[in-house]
Nucleic acid binder design. Structure first.
Lengths: 150, 150
DNA sequence: TTAGGTGCAAATTCTTTGCACCCTG
DNA sequence: CAGGGTGCAAAGAATTTGCACCTAA
C-alpha cells in the first residue's frame, strides 16, 4: 500500500475542508476520517476496505455512511472512481488493440484505433512496477450528442 | 449503437467456433446467440442488456445463462470486460493527472506520472466523437510480486 | 436552534448457485 | 448415450433507503 507524503496529505485535507465549506457541506467527524483515509493511502480501496480501516479509529462507523460519504466526495470532485462508476460490468467483443472514448455525461464508450497510441514507449517508472502486457488509452470527454445540449 | 461490418462479424463467429471447439466447450444455441449479439454490436453492453436483446430472438433465454456465458467467453479470451472485472467500485483520491498500472493477476492498481503521456496528441478520429477532457493511459501487465511466482 | 448527517435495519439490486431435465458431440 | 449446459427458483453479495436520533454551524 503506497503511502502519500505527510505534506501532500496536509494539502489534501486543507483542500477537502475548503471544498466542503464552499459547498455548504458539514464537516463531520465521520467524513473527516473517511476522507483522511482516502488521502493518506495511495492504493484504490473499495467501500468495504475503507470501512474496515476507518472503523479501527472510529468503531461506531457504519458501512452505509462510508458509501454515502464516498459518493458525496465523488460528487464534490474530491475523489474519483476507477473504471465505470455506478455502472455494472460491461463486456467488449473487440479483440483488436483499441482504445476507448468515454462520454462522462451519458456513459457512451466508443472504440477507436490509433497506431501512435499503440506504439507509446513505456517509461522506466513503469518497468519498475512490473512487466507490461497491454497499453490502453482512455479518453474522457463529452460526446457530440451530449455536448450540443448540455 | 455502432454496428460491426458483416465481414468482421463472420470472422468473429468463425473464431468463436474454433475456440470453443479447441477448448472442448459445447456450441449450444444459447451461447451462439449470446456471442453473436456481442460480435454484432460495437457498444459495450452489460449482462442485462445482452439478456434483453437476445431474448427477442430466443424467448426462453434466462439471465443466469447470460451471466454464465459472458464469463465463460471472458475466460476463453473471446471477450473482455471494461474496467475492473469481478470487482467492486474502487475510489481514488489522487486528483493530479496520472495514469494507472494494473496487475492483471492480483488486481494491484498503481498510479504513475508521465509528462509524455499527458501530452499525447489527440487523433482526428476522436475529435469526431466528442470533445476531450482527460486522457488516461492504463497499462496492464504483471507486477513484480506476482511475476516472480506464477 | 435546526437542517443536515448518522446508525440501524430492512429493502433493493445485481449476480451466483443447486438441482432436475435437456441437448450436443 | 454421457456429461456438460440450461432454466427455474432460491440464495448470496453489494449497495441503497426509511426513519428516529444526533450534532455541526
Amino acid at each position: 500500500m503506497s503511502q502519500i507524503s505527510p505534506t501532500e496529505v496536509k494539502q489534501r485535507m486543507e483542500c477537502y475542508k475548503e471544498v466542503c465549506h464552499n459547498a455548504g457541506v458539514k464537516l463531520t467527524h465521520q467524513r473527516l476520517e473517511i476522507y483522511r483515509e482516502m488521502a493518506t493511502t495511495g492504493d484504490h480501496p473499495d467501500a468495504d476496505i475503507v470501512f474496515k480501516r476507518v472503523r479501527k479509529r472510529l468503531p461506531t462507523m457504519s458501512l452505509d455512511t462510508v458509501y454515502r460519504t464516498l459518493w458525496l466526495l465523488t460528487d464534490l470532485g474530491l475523489i474519483t472512481t476507477l473504471g465505470p462508476s455506478r455502472e455494472r460490468t460491461r463486456f467488449d467483443a473487440n479483440l483488436k488493440h483499441h482504445h476507448h472514448f468515454k462520454c462522462v455525461n451519458c456513459g457512451l464508450t466508443q472504440d477507436f484505433y490509433n497506431d501512435e497510441f499503440d506504439a507509446i514507449p513505456i517509461p522506466d517508472s513503469v518497468q519498475a512496477i512490473g512487466s507490461v502486457d497491454v497499453t490502453r488509452v482512455e479518453i474522457r470527454g463529452i460526446c457530440h450528442k451530449c455536448g450540443g445540449k448540455g
